[in-house]
Nucleic acid binder design. Sequence first.
DNA 1: TATGAATGAGGATTCATTCAT
DNA 2: TATGAATGAATCCTCATTCAT
Lengths: 206, 206, 206, 206
Amino acid sequence: MQRPDERKRQLIVECASKLFASLPFHKVTLDDIAAKAGVGKGTLYVYFPSKEELFSAIVREGFGQIVDQLKRRLAGPGVSPAEGLRHVVAELFRFAFAHPEYFELMRTAPGLVYKDDPRWREKFAELTRLIADTIAAGVRAGEFNDPFPELTAVCIPGLVRSAMLFGPRNLDEKTAVKHVMGILAQGLIVRGGEANVPAVDSQPGA
Amino acid sequence: MQRPDERKRQLIVECASKLFASLPFHKVTLDDIAAKAGVGKGTLYVYFPSKEELFSAIVREGFGQIVDQLKRRLAGPGVSPAEGLRHVVAELFRFAFAHPEYFELMRTAPGLVYKDDPRWREKFAELTRLIADTIAAGVRAGEFNDPFPELTAVCIPGLVRSAMLFGPRNLDEKTAVKHVMGILAQGLIVRGGEANVPAVDSQPGA
Amino acid sequence: MQRPDERKRQLIVECASKLFASLPFHKVTLDDIAAKAGVGKGTLYVYFPSKEELFSAIVREGFGQIVDQLKRRLAGPGVSPAEGLRHVVAELFRFAFAHPEYFELMRTAPGLVYKDDPRWREKFAELTRLIADTIAAGVRAGEFNDPFPELTAVCIPGLVRSAMLFGPRNLDEKTAVKHVMGILAQGLIVRGGEANVPAVDSQPGA
Amino acid sequence: MQRPDERKRQLIVECASKLFASLPFHKVTLDDIAAKAGVGKGTLYVYFPSKEELFSAIVREGFGQIVDQLKRRLAGPGVSPAEGLRHVVAELFRFAFAHPEYFELMRTAPGLVYKDDPRWREKFAELTRLIADTIAAGVRAGEFNDPFPELTAVCIPGLVRSAMLFGPRNLDEKTAVKHVMGILAQGLIVRGGEANVPAVDSQPGA
DNA sequence: TATGAATGAGGATTCATTCAT
DNA sequence: TATGAATGAATCCTCATTCAT
């Protein structure tokens, strides 16, 4: 007796991810995906009930990875709010650079496919909750100043997204993290004659 | 492209915008658009050579409006870098709140439709150039600290996008501008015991 | 401006009827129908919303013709019950011989396609009502003896169907009508040594 | 065909019969049948070489039962023509009431599946021959009057079919047999002021 | 024998585009 | 210019059948 094969499922997800990242949803055909994965077209339907569900699953699972990893990072004892914020940004970029097609893929997405999917909303809410909680903890500790952590929380993945999609081609992970952390931590305005450039610069590797 | 009737063209653009904002590109049919606009399906082809071009034109014209308006705002004499930055954020949100479907529409877009369109790239480059120049001027004036203005420039529309798409439903324009300006200006970290909320509040019109 | 073309619709119905009569429903493809009718495949969808609806429409319209014609025949003044019964049988066979594919087509039908269609049920009910009323009138007039006219009414089309589908290939309309009328009128059993063949023959036009 | 497990084969036939009776052939999937029978899909192919063959076998075996049973009934010594006719009708209804899905199943059949199957034609021919012979014997004996027994023979199962498929829902076997016998024996026309209801009632066991 | 994962040919349906009016 | 009937290429999905286990 044969069992559904998790390996094969993963293979399909990976091949489909690449295709969805390089072409808009409606230009990726199931024939393409099956061919790229080296499986029969019908096999796709053994693992996913429809093209939209396949796409949705990819997006959801990506989010799930980010959330799980971030949870682990933030769970450590004695993670300060500033460290927490850095973990958030660093994890988002780690994932983004590990899966360079991912944001591209979401950009080409047929919006409602995922935005209206309650399972995706849940994952997304979980991510922003993690971020908002980190910020709120900082605010309570007197380390952060943020009148609206929930709004900031949704903005941070947006910063990452923009940097990945529209930033310079040769942007490297370290620079990206440092830059976004610079914006979030000090902002742009030079304070009291004391430029915050040093502050940014003081971050090793900047 | 002939435009025998600019009114009708505009009507088509508006109806199509709403539909593209509420459904992914491939789920919006020309029948839908024609019906919503109350014109014959063939008429669409009088004004736009294809569905993709229609979509592209909508996106491009939106960008064009932002860029034109922003240019005007920034062109004034004696606009300080801080004022310039505020103009950027304010104009992005002004447009976003005036055309609430716009970011939604771009989110549902079939990526390559616009990303690979040189006319769109040009508009986008123009927008980020305006922003980067504003920041760079601030840096030169010693008012801003930003080692990578081009990267920041692409991030700012991303902040606006995230706030619009994923921020709280009842977010109002003034709060949005103030919050994003707060992040960009001071960042989140409390400096010398002085919270940055007052600083934000002190900004006129915020 | 072009108008939907009733001629074209009729053409499609006729071509589809022949195909449905010669092959089971699931073996008739829309390509076949379009090719036979000499129209584009998409054109079929201008006139019928689906393959099942096309089939259904064919069946329904056939029934409609029978019912309409029969109504006209029975409406005449002074139609005696015996004449009415003859009209029923004659009309059923007239239609069957005029559209020899019709019963075959219904035989190949995907049962539920029409049996569960309320529009077909209505037509069918109308037909059996006409027949049952004719018989009931005969019973009231003392000319017929039938304890269960509604049951007889559904049986009569069944007789016609069987004769058409399974009777001898060279069966002609006149013989068919006479034979079925013979069964309905006298039954098979010889009464009082007097054969019923003469009785049948004595019916004018038989 | 091997039949390693006659029980399992019978189980498949029964489950498939019910499904074919409730849905048109092309809407019944082998998955459905396998699931309903609680066997693997591949197992179906151990017992039947194809879906059409499975269907065909069901129809053929049903006919076979009718024919075998009828042969036995008619084979008895001293069966009069009138008794023979009654046996025919009674046996057809007995089977129909014992297998209420059967006529429904044949109605949903993809015509050619069985009509062109020589094995089915043979069974059907055998059935109609039995009936025709019974009638012909009656004619020879001077008890029946029928100029065309072969045509009548194919009509009789049609009467039964119609009564089962389109007759009243609460039709019971006894009434059905009596009614059809009434039609076949006396017809509808009142003869010499003597109603045929008594005649029908007078038939024993009706 | 029994299974069900894998397959891919096949087909219904959609819809952007064309063009006669 | 404006229309919408007509088109057929394109594609998602189904499902009978196969075959490795």
